[in-house]
């Protein structure tokens, strides 16, 4: 016959388990966060932005803006077009909502997506590190299922 814990002991034990679980899980989330892109100079990065009926091309011979996001912002400053974005705190990341006056809230089925060397971006664009000679594409793309 085991002794039954009283309500207070159960509460203390439960709190301890929950706090330990929260701490462990938070640690795991921090380990899984994409590593911050280390600052560094990248050369000959090519950027293409495909909007609805327009294309912007930009090449940076040498820049410290070595992410898919920061090269876009750099191009916007150099070529004088607007880039709007929403910063997220958890997980950290920038969500681009508008480029050159074309926003995600526009006509149906279209939103801004990015690719680096043909690979679809699966992390936030400010965590997508660039290397020399990389090709970045930002496209205002329609879903192809007619949706």
């Amino acid at each position: 016959m085991g002794t039954r814990m009283n309500e207070r002991s159960q509460a203390i034990l439960f709190c301890a388990i929950v706090i330990a679980a929260i701490a462990g899980l938070y640690g795991a989330t921090q380990l899984m966060e994409p590593a911050s892109v280390q600052s560094g100079v990248v050369r000959f990065v090519h950027l293409r932005i495909d909007g609805p009926g327009w294309t912007i091309r930009y090449t940076s011979m040498a820049t410290i803006n070595n992410t898919a996001f920061s090269i876009l912002v750099e191009a916007g400053q150099k070529l004088d077009f607007a880039v709007a974005y929403v910063p997220y705190d958890l997980p950290k990341g920038m969500f681009v909502t508008e480029i050159n006056g074309t926003s995600n809230g526009g006509s149906g089925g279209l939103s801004w997506q990015f690719w680096v060397n043909g690979a679809y971006g699966t992390v936030a664009s400010d965590h997508a590190a660039l290397s020399d000679n990389d090709v970045v594409l930002w496209a205002f793309t329609a879903s192809q299922d007619g949706g």
């Binding site: 989330t29 679809y120 879903s143």
Partner: peptide, 22 residues
Amino acid sequence: PFGVTLGVMIEAQVPFTLYHVL
């Protein structure tokens, strides 16, 4: 529609799910 596989989608979902469990 962008050619992303379900496996890639689930993999990208993992950190978000950890935050959701948290």
